[in-house]
Simulated scan of single mutants.
Amino acid sequence: MPNDFNQPVIDEFRANRGRMTGYFEGARLLLLTTTGARTGTPHTTPVGYLPDGDRVLVIASAAGSDRHPDWFRNLVAHPQVTVESGTFTYEARAEVLTGEERDRLFARAVEADAGWATYQEKTTRVIPVVALHSLAQGGPGTINATSFGEAIKVVHDAFRHELTLIRGELAAGTTTLGAQLRVNCLTFCQGLHNHHTGEDLALFPLVAERHPGSAPALARLREEHERIAGLVEELRESLASTTDAAAVRVEVERLTSALEAHLTYEEEELVPLFDAAA
């Protein structure tokens, strides 16, 4: 039976592809569907997450309850889960982390949000940290879109949203760059690199074949990919060499400006081609 609190959150999340208002506005949220440990039926729960390279982390805090949340007990019994990020839906393998790795990542979560420590203080149980590993082959999962043109905009909006979160975290943080914020930036950089590589190798050749007149636009987009790759590398170097959040903020703002212009131009040039074909 749907949870009276969770269901409106789930409905808003799906209707707006992960963009939330109210209490969860600006939060890192995903929908986690597990298989009931006793019933075998699917259960969907909104949970907060932390980026961690090619996986995401979720924390079974249950707001500091002495009892593990139902979704955690479910994934212990059935480790294959479904993740909805708003942009993508994919199957994942849940791994309950232990020992030094669990402690290190929980400490990183606390550094990003002291509320996790407050929850741990409320209970004698060790709050679990779970890594979700995507099982999707050849990509991040199924894009939540009904057309190719819409898919481009949905993926672009995901990058815009992530940059907004990172900029907000930089603005709200201390003068020292936190470990989790550093990981957030690096995860974003890798995702952007993968996206542009996929466009260069697969999408742009397809567009060129079907729409020869798009050659000038594709040439400009490829040049912009190279320029953005340079900005990403400068951000990586800044992350590696400093703990000064202000210095990193400068690099993030430069990347944001260039990327926003690039995404807008790509949508103006390519989306009409796919919409017309559809």
Rank of each mutant, 00 (worst) to 15 (best):
203 L>E: 00
189 C>L: 10
74 N>A: 04
13 F>Q: 08
59 I>S: 02
76 V>E: 11
174 T>S: 09
122 K>D: 13
117 A>D: 15
70 D>P: 01
73 R>Y: 02
27 A>M: 12
38 R>N: 08
133 H>K: 12
78 H>R: 13
36 G>L: 03
133 H>E: 14
217 A>D: 13
5 F>Y: 15
119 Y>F: 11
58 V>Q: 05
50 L>K: 12
195 H>Y: 04
133 H>M: 06
247 A>L: 09
83 V>D: 14
83 V>F: 03
207 V>F: 00
241 S>H: 07
103 D>P: 09
225 H>S: 01
135 L>W: 02
15 A>W: 10
173 G>K: 01
17 R>N: 15
132 L>P: 09
26 G>C: 01
42 P>M: 07
202 A>E: 07
218 L>P: 09
114 A>G: 15
235 L>F: 12
71 W>H: 12
191 G>A: 07
270 L>T: 00
209 E>V: 03
193 H>C: 05
21 T>Q: 10
119 Y>G: 14
238 S>W: 01
84 E>T: 11
13 F>Y: 15
109 A>H: 15
171 A>L: 10
215 A>R: 03
125 R>P: 10
209 E>L: 05
157 D>K: 06
211 H>N: 02
162 E>Y: 14
59 I>D: 02
146 T>W: 08
59 I>K: 01
89 T>N: 08
71 W>K: 05
85 S>Q: 06
56 V>S: 05
242 T>A: 05
181 L>R: 07
169 E>F: 13
273 L>G: 04
57 L>H: 06
